[in-house]
Amino acid sequence: MLSFGVVNKRRVAPVINRLLAFSLTLLMVSGCGTRWFPETVKVAPAVVDEASGVGRKIVQTTTGLVYGNSTYNTDILILDVGAPSFQDAVNVAHDRLRLRGWVTSKKGESVVYMHLKKEGRDNTLLIESLKSLEEYGVAQEAQVVKAIKADQAKSGTYIVLALTPSD
């Protein structure tokens, strides 16, 4: 017969109570949406590819914003849609995106906000000018500068599509 000796109930009870309290705390915190491991949230590659199809892609890059324990990636596309002016380029891109299922949220003179639910996620897209690259911190990236300089067409009417997951 195995014997573990005399169990002191006064010492065991507080240990069990602490374990139960810790377990309940973990259960409650995990139910509150707390993430235990870092997460990267991004637009599905199929959505990015579809959006890039509205024009000739000059370059694509990504930037990320850290919020809490998650990194939200923004895919940035620089496109040439073959329009003679920036405003015409915005209109062409807007019309082509609408044909692909994107819905206009807000349209201004220099920026258009659109959204699309696809691949199980809500996605937001902005159509902007090259000046917006400064805001995203990618204007001086070597690949961006090199791609714009190397573009043979040099149309000067590039547009920026910024795609972000929005849920």
Rank of each mutant, 00 (worst) to 15 (best):
V138P: 15
S70K: 01
T34R: 01
V111W: 00
G53H: 02
V43N: 10
T62I: 03
V111I: 10
A162N: 09
F37N: 10
T34F: 13
T71F: 02
S23H: 04
F86R: 01
A147V: 11
Q87M: 03
I159M: 06
G5K: 00
G31W: 05
V41L: 13
F4V: 13
V111M: 11
E134G: 13
W102F: 10
L97G: 13
T164V: 09
D95P: 00
V47W: 03
V48F: 05
E39Y: 02
G31H: 06
A89E: 05
M1E: 12
L77E: 07
A46G: 13
D122K: 00
Y67N: 09
T34V: 14
D75E: 12
T40S: 14
S129W: 05
V81E: 08
V160D: 14
V29P: 10
V90G: 03
Q60C: 06
I127W: 00
Y158M: 14
L97F: 01
L2V: 06
D88G: 11
A13G: 08
K57H: 05
N8V: 09
V112Y: 00
V41K: 05
Q140I: 07
P165S: 11
L77P: 09
M1N: 07
V59N: 04
T164Q: 11
R35G: 15
E134V: 14
L161W: 03
D80V: 04
G53C: 09
E128S: 14
G5E: 06
V112M: 04
V48A: 13
E109H: 02
D75P: 09
V111L: 09
V41N: 13
E128I: 13
V29N: 07
I16G: 10
V160W: 07
T104N: 03
F22R: 00
R35A: 14
N123H: 10
S132I: 09
R98P: 01
Q140D: 15
G82W: 00
N17S: 14
E119Q: 10
F4Y: 07
K118C: 07
I127G: 06
S52R: 06
N73F: 02
R96I: 02
S155Y: 06
L77Y: 01
L97E: 12
V12I: 14
A44G: 13
D122W: 00
I159H: 04
V112F: 00
K131D: 15
L2F: 08
R18A: 15
Y136V: 14
S85L: 05
V15Q: 09
S110C: 02
S70E: 11
A93M: 03
L97K: 00
T157H: 13
L99R: 01
T61P: 08
V81W: 00
C32Q: 10
V66K: 04
Y158P: 13
T25L: 15
T34Y: 09
D95F: 00
S3D: 15
L2R: 01
S85Y: 03
V48G: 09
L133G: 13
L26Q: 08
A162E: 12
K107W: 00
Y72H: 08
L116T: 02
S110D: 12
L163T: 12
L2K: 01
A150Q: 08
L77M: 04
S155T: 15
L130S: 11
L133W: 03
K106T: 11
K57A: 15
R98L: 07
V15S: 11
A13V: 09
M28K: 02
A51S: 10
S129K: 01
G33S: 11
L116P: 05
P84G: 09
Q152D: 15
V144W: 01
A153R: 01
